[in-house]
Design a protein around this nucleic acid. Sequence first.
RNA 1: GGCCCCGUCGUCUAGCGGUCUAGGACACUGGCCUUUCACGCCGGUAACACGGGUUCGAGUCCCGUCGGGGUCACCA
Length: 527
Amino acid sequence: MPSIVRTRFAPSPTGYLHIGGVRTALFCWLFARRNGGQFLLRIDDTDQERNVESALAPILHGFRWLGMDWDEGPDVGGPHAPYYQSQRLPQYQAAAEKLLAAGVAYRDYATPDELQAERELAQQEKRPFLYSRRWMAETATDQKRFEADGRQGVVRLKMPREGKLVIHDLVRGDVEFDWAREQDHVVQRADGTCLYHLASVVDDHDFQISHVIRAEEHLSNTPRQIFIAQSLDYPLPEYAHLPFVAEPGSKNKLSKRKLDKYLKNRDFAQLNEHGWKIAQAIGFSTAAETFNPVIVDFYEQVGYLPDAIINYLLLLGWSYDDKREFFSREEMIANFSLERVTKAPASFDAKKLWMFQDHYMQALPMKQKVARMVPYLQKAGLLSSPPPCDVAEKLTRIITAAGDRIKVSGDILAYADFFFADKIVYDSQAVEKNIGNPGATALLAKFKDRLSTVEPFEVGPLEQALHQFMADEQIKVGDIIHALRVAITGKAVGPGLYDCLAILGRETSLARIQSTLDQYGQASGAA
RNA sequence: GGCCCCGUCGUCUAGCGGUCUAGGACACUGGCCUUUCACGCCGGUAACACGGGUUCGAGUCCCGUCGGGGUCACCA
């Protein structure tokens, strides 16, 4: 029997795509692609009410942005549609009936209070809780009797109370469980709706999933799922339980709830702050819960590259060897294997992600850089829409001058806004430090005259002119250059000074120096 | 607490009995380069959780201890 590899990722429609979920999905996707199989998306919305579509949209969008395509699932459909659990209730109910008929499940009429009482008693007596099955209806007569009492029945699994189960996990090896520790879990509610474990097993079978690859928190659920599958005569899929993505600097599972805690991690906080600055500059209004480095959308908005995120995530729990870290999509598909997945949780490291982003951004062809950065300038109101036709040429010069200072597309605003702005914004600290004394402004005024004669107004001649000026005035380069930078850019940091001057052009450069002198020269001179 | 999983530099990891006086990457750090910042280059600090076995030989195998985590729902 030639078996086709089919993996799935099963998000709940929560409204956002979690970075830990992406890592798990990535491994599923890679495994399928590596083995020439299929990767599907199934929507676990048994619990959801309305708005599934709107809560799902950001998740699908995130996967698309990252370049992770699915062969079957929402939007793309497929031979096993629907791929929404909320639309598959009949299948689950039929499975529940089969379990009942086979005697591996029973109708149970215990009230929640009665069950709770049994639990507490077990706890008092310090023994593991196991349901007494006191309200189990084994016959139609029992059923009628309980129902006559006004009780409501659910369907429970009748788990084995002896023996062992060995799971052959592709990541963890053999894992052993005692059947007697497993609870009689409810698989169907009194209202006929079904619970996750039943649904999941039925779907994995119906969708012909060959490898259930998921995060390790599901490992302890696996026995009951295997019990259901075996009882339904389903062939068992292979299982692989991946380590989860842990919080920065800890081994706890990364979750969106503990953002405050993560922000105490310096690297994480820096990444977050950097993103928020860009979001503010482009007028992207959002909330902390949905815009932070745990959520994929954060990276898209700020201008990260999907390849960088994916490459970083690939190394979170997987490695190729002791040297190689950079992988193209083709290379990761060609080399991925579950054998090389790590067993221990891997914590999220903002700095390492940053390194990958830097790498991929520097490797990006100039045309693509320009295309990616134009929207940021537009959103910040520095560039019209559509952009002027000569903007590509100017931007190319600017981006080249800014060089590797630009790590994400949104950084164009931090390093190049002054090229586009009519009036520059002065950084007060930079002004104070570099222009806040009469000597500096005097030199600035003198050099301004010198600048008006430089011909052509390009990097080489500009540099020559400045050196000549230094010789004439008997000053060092530091005596003039910092003031000059602040005068034309408003900032203390940025691309090379001659590049800035040349790109700005003579007219603008002179005007900016003049307005800086107007604004700060006299005040400090008088003081 | 029961069950299950995990435990190599701060972090991600290599290591599948001898080639490990433990390798790489990120971070940190000293220096060089430099008009700022960023980059680049050279160097440095830093780990096998602990204790018993097995073996000629253990980071690598076994047991125990300790530590961390996951899970114990009519959530997914």
